[in-house]
Every structure is written in structure tokens, then in C-alpha cells.
Design a protein around this nucleic acid. Structure first.
Lengths: 212, 212, 212, 212
DNA sequence: TATGAATGAGTGTTCATTCAT
DNA sequence: GATGAATGAACACTCATTCAT
């Protein structure tokens, strides 16, 4: 059996978190056992406790690292000032590719957060960060006149985050991924003036899928 | 100890479901024990099993009845062809009043659905129903020219549902209810042409290419 | 639902015992529930308690009546002074016909007797009765010179009972009924001088044809 | 609290089986709790589940090891070609010494076997093995002219096993051990030609078991 | 008498956590 | 550090028994 710590304690933690996120994603917090996590890693149960004092702390730690991938995808797809519908589509695809069509883990984290204040605080911070990030992005779009001047950007950023989260809940409860993508894009189209403004205002060649 | 059944077996079931929804909402599925539910009702554990064969079935049954209130509020606020922003605001307030600012239960149901196919089927059906209902509602708005003609209504309906669900997740993870309401309304404003149309009608330039 | 007592309390008891013996035979003491017995009879659980103060007492009472059929078969097949092998064969067949090839109930009774002195006393009495009955029967056979003079009849009677009980245990643990019958008959043949004596009486004094 | 496993996992299993057989023998399968077994061993309930996945499996495993002692006694007493009555007597005494006068455990095993096919298969195999072993033994006796040539040995072997099992049932239901032994021996005497042949051959009157 | 809803003690089983090695 | 055997608290579920009607 490979040791947990080949060289650095930090790496050991990291490996555990990785194994944990896979196990929790597959089985959910309550169904997953410490034994499961240990086996996933090829390590003894006891070893986990050298790095995390309890299952709860392990889950918390994992919850903190989990959004990393989300952030990367979010910022890499929503940074360019290109067509926001296109960005949204890329984001959707990238998320699916990265997490499969199983948003189970987010849900588990959320579920735990509802009874774990510390975890909730972490999630809240992430939210804020995402919202601010998105708001900046929207600011850019506004300059391109893709967003109605009467809209407040921060609340709108939150509603975009909510839209994404909400789609995850729909997928978990059975909405086919394809339909989820449709809803996701239609939501974006509705929000951005893009396909309307582009044409009427600029009269350019913008080729929105829907717009011919 | 009061009897579970004052007169009708059906009422007994109903009482249990009610107690269960309170307990599950407060503690979550796994943390709540059958004992908790029984105590909440002032009844013995065994009594619960006269009506539901297992904790899981109890939860399922509760999950099926839970959306009833949601439906009522949904259909009563989103039926009039009044200002949709106003409807959205009423919906938000009614939901808060009814469920408090604790959307924990929806989350628990969702969480269980991810591992319980029967439950998932129920949720999926509800989704469809809501989506169709909302789509009809949107149809009405379209006739009032409040919705862009290029938008497909069913996906848009799903995205509205997602928006709501997503806001619940944000609230669970710490977003203040006030901000949630702000995001909810801003999302609606962005989607509906209302405020712009109002203006544009008054002003001049048609934004919508359809009218241009 | 038919009432337990159509006319006489005694008949009610009797009906319950009958239902109980069927249920206990099929499921065994521990697996059978009072509910099972009540349903078998089309009566409420509570009704059983009007006639028997507990499951244990019900089982005891049933255990006392159960051997009735056994006795009848025993005495009707082992009374004639005909060929004892023939009697044994008839007994075997009659028992199978009456109880099927499922001696489960005897076992259950035995099992309970091992922890229930009152029940044990009943069984012991039955044993004695059977043994004495069989001893008388053997007495008759001895007069016909079918039993070695040196054998004591009461112990031999017990060993015949044991032989039967033992075959039941073998059948329960998987011995095919056919083989059980073979063993049963072979045991009898071995014990009774019959087939040898018949010959020797006709032939000479040699008991064993080998030595004749 | 002493550890279940001093050194070898196999020994731990073995210890548990030992404790289990004591507890099951005393209380019976249903009355015995896992707690009882654990306490008997000075171990926690959970420990038992490290070695046996359920009470049923524990009982099965115990049932498989239980006959070991029986086999040893059986083969060691019924191997010599000495006087079979003597062998029978030694067997009886050895069994009593080993298991006390409480054949409860066999009964419990039997009782469970009637509802557990896996267990039944084990018992059936054991039966066959015993029967074949005894048949060989009888073969030897036949050569010594102690068994009538007309008897088939395998069925007879089964009937001897049945005789033993049956005596256990009688003892459980209250037959004094002394009488049981009497019946056991009288059964053997009846079956074997020994005492008769001895006489006829030698011409003496003594039928004493010991006397050759 | 008879009912059957309700009780609640009892038990098998799980699993996070500990700790001797 | 690492192990994994052991712990023991916790909990779902059963069912003999009771009792209001």
C-alpha cells in the first residue's frame, strides 16, 4: 500500500481531498464512509485522521477546494468580451466535461452547509467572489450595450449564479442535460440584448444562432 | 398520549406527513430520526410504521405532498396577466411567508432524489408540470409583447424554475433573503421587455427586430 | 369477518389452536406472529388474547393438542399383531400423508420445550404414554417370537420412538423422504426377528440363515 | 477489555465461534443476542461483525464447526471391530462427557436448518459422511457375522444416526439420561446379532454385553 | 365479545473514531 | 507516520401486548 505521504504533508492532504471528493460525489456525504475514502486512496482509515480530525472536517476541507475547478471554468469562459451566449455555451460544456452530468457533489455540499455554519461561510464567500467576478464581466458587456442600462449588475450576477445552480438541481431531479442546456442558453438570450441590439443598433454581421 | 388517528386513517397519514416535513426541514433526512418525527407528533415510533413502511417511504410520501403549497403559490401569483415583475415579487414574498427563509427541505428532497429513482421521477413530473404551467403564463405575456419573439417559451420556463431553485441554494448557503429577492427581481426584469418596452414605446426606436 | 366464537368458547379455542398449528408449522415459533395466526383465522389479534394470555401459552396449548393426530396414527397402525414391518410402513405413510414431509412443527415444539419446563413436562408425559403403548405392542410381538427374549421392551420402545424422531430430524436436514423410509424400515427389519424367524420356524432353529 | 485477536485472525474467528456455540447452546438462536455472544467473549458487539457479517452467518459458521467434536467421537468409538454394543456405550458416554446432557445446540441448528437452505446443505453433507462412515463400520461387523445378511447397510447406518438424533430429542423433552442410554443400548442389541450368535455358537446362556 | 390502532422495549447492524502496535 | 482491530453510541424496524371503542 502506498503511503499517504510520499514527501510532503501538504500533498498527502491534497490526495485525501481528491479521493474524498470522488467518493462524496459518488455516494453523497452520509452514504460515503471513511472506509470508502481510505480504500479509494489505498490507505488505512486511521491515516485519514492524521490529516483531518473528523469526517465533517474532511468534508469541509473538500468543500473548500471543490469550487476551484468551478472557478477556473467560470473565469476562463466568462472573461472574454465575446458573445455572452457563446460564453455560456462554453461554460456549460466545460462543466459537463469536468463534472459529468452528475452535480451530486454541489448538492451534498449545499446540504451539509445548511447545518454547518463554517461551511456556509465558505460557500457565501465563494458566492460573493463569483458574483463580483461576474459583475465585472457584465460591466464589460454593458459597455458593449448588451445589457439594459436599468439593470443593476450585482443582483443580476447573483441571478446568473442562481440560474446555474438551479439548473443543477433540475438535472439532479431528472431534467435531461440537453434540455438543461437549452434552458441555460434561453435564459442568457433573454437577459442579454445581444441578438436584438446587435442587429438593430449596429446592424452588423453578428450571427446569433437563433437570429438569422 | 394523543392518538394518531382521531377519526380517519387518512388524516393520520396527513398528520404524520406534516410532522415529518417539519422535522426533515429542520434536521435533514439523515439527522432526523423516526423517533424525532414520532415525538414531534406526540406518538410512538411504532405508530409511524402503521402508516409508512420505512423512513424512506415516509420521506418519499412527504416529498410528494411538499410541492402542493408551492404549486398553489406558483399558480396563484403567476396567473394574472399583470406586470410579471409584480407577480414575481408576490411569489417571492408568499414563498417566504409560507416556508420561512429556510429552503432546507427542498434541498433534502433533492439530495435524496439523487439516490432514489422513484423520488426523482416525482420531482421530474413536478418540474414538467411547473414548466408547462409557466410556459402558458409566458405565452400570455408574449401576446402582450413582453417577451421577445425569438425566445422559446418552454426552455425559458425551465430557466425561471431554475432561477428560483438556484436562489434557494444561494439562500441556504448564506445569501441574505433581501439580496436574494433583489436577484430574483433583477433576473425577471432582465428577461421581460416590460420596462424597456414601456420606454421604447414612449420613446421611439423598436428594440425588437420583430417590430423594427 | 367471522367471529371467533360462534357458539362455544371451547370451539373458539379449538379453532385458534388449529390455525396456530398451521402457522407455527409453516413459519416456526419465532417467525410466526400473532398477527399471522389471527389472519389465518380471519380474526383480530386482540381476539387471540381473549383465549390465550400470551403467544407462549398459545404455543403450549397447541403443543399439547398437536400429538393427538400422532397418537391416532401410532395406535391405529401399531395395534394389529400383523407383520411389524408392515405396520411400520403404514405408520410412515400415514404420517407423511397427515403431516406432509415437513416435520417442522415437532422440531419447533421440541425447541421450545428445551426452554419451557411446562411444555417439557407435557412432552415427557406423551413420551411415556407412547413408550408404554409401544411396549404393550412389543409384548404381543414377543409372544409371537418376533422379538429376542433377551431384550427389554420398554427401552426398546423408547428406541423406536427415538428412531422415528431421529428420522424427522434427518428429513428436516435434507434426507430425502424415500431414503428416510428406507432407513426406517431397515431399522425395523434389523430389530425384529421376523424375516429370519419366519424362516427358522419353518426351517429349523437357526436364526441366521447364514449359519444354518 | 481483551482484544478479540491476540495474534491471528483465524484464532479470533475460532474464539467467537466457541463463545457463540456456548451462548446458542444455552439460550437458543432467537433468545441469544449478539450482545450476549460479545459479552461471553468480553468483546464489543461491533467486533463480532468484523468476522461475521450477520448473526445468521455467525450461526451458520458455528453450525459447521459444531459437528467436529461429534465426528471425532463417532469415528474414534465406532472404528474398532470390537463389540459394537461396547462401542455404542463408549460413544454415549463420550458424547455426554463432551456435551453434557444438553443436546440443545443440535436442536437449534436443526431448527434453523429448516429455514436456512445453506445450513441444510451442510447438515445433509454431514449426514452423508456419517452414514458412509458408519456403513463401512457395519461392513466390518457383517464380516464378523454380526449383521444379518439381508440388511442393507447404508439405510441401516442412517437409522443408527436417526436413533442417536432421536434420543437427543427425547432427552431434550425430558427423558432421563440413564433411560436414554438404556434405550440406545437396547436398540443396538436388537440390531446386532452378537449376543444371540454368541450364544448359539458357544451354546452359553449369558447374553451379557461384556461377555464374548 | 371483538377490534385494531397504538405502544415501547428490544435487537441487529453500521460506522466514526480511537489506539496499541 | 501508518495500520486496522476494536469500540460503542446510535438508529431503523418489529411485534407481543394493551385498551378505548
Amino acid at each position: 500500500m502506498p503511503k499517504v505521504v510520499p514527501e510532503y504533508k501538504e500533498e498527502a492532504r491534497s490526495r485525501i481531498l481528491d479521493a474524498a471528493s470522488r467518493v462524496f460525489a459518488e455516494k453523497g456525504y452520509h452514504e460515503a464512509t471513511m472506509e470508502d475514502v481510505a480504500k479509494q486512496l489505498g490507505v488505512s482509515k486511521g491515516a485519514l485522521y492524521l490529516y483531518f480530525s473528523s469526517k465533517e472536517r474532511l468534508f469541509e476541507a473538500m468543500s473548500r477546494t471543490a469550487p476551484r475547478a468551478f472557478k477556473e471554468i467560470l473565469y476562463s469562459t466568462f472573461n472574454t468580451q465575446a458573445n455572452p451566449i457563446e460564453s455560456a455555451s462554453q461554460f456549460f460544456d466545460a462543466m459537463m466535461k469536468r463534472f459529468g452530468s452528475n452535480p451530486r457533489l454541489s448538492l451534498e455540499i449545499l446540504s451539509e452547509a445548511s447545518r454547518n455554519p463554517a461551511l456556509r461561510r465558505v460557500l457565501r464567500q465563494n458566492q460573493e467572489e463569483y458574483a463580483n467576478g461576474l459583475a465585472s464581466f457584465l460591466e464589460g458587456l454593458r459597455k458593449m450595450r448588451l445589457i439594459d442600462d436599468n439593470l443593476e449588475l450585482l443582483p443580476l450576477a447573483y441571478s446568473l449564479i442562481a440560474l446555474w445552480n438551479g439548473l443543477e438541481t433540475l438535472v439532479v431531479s431528472g431534467l435531461p442535460v440537453e434540455e438543461a442546456k437549452g434552458a441555460w442558453l434561453e435564459g442568457f438570450k433573454a437577459i442579454f440584448l445581444q441578438h436584438r441590439l446587435q442587429q438593430s443598433v449596429i446592424g452588423s454581421k453578428r450571427i446569433d444562432k437563433k437570429t438569422s
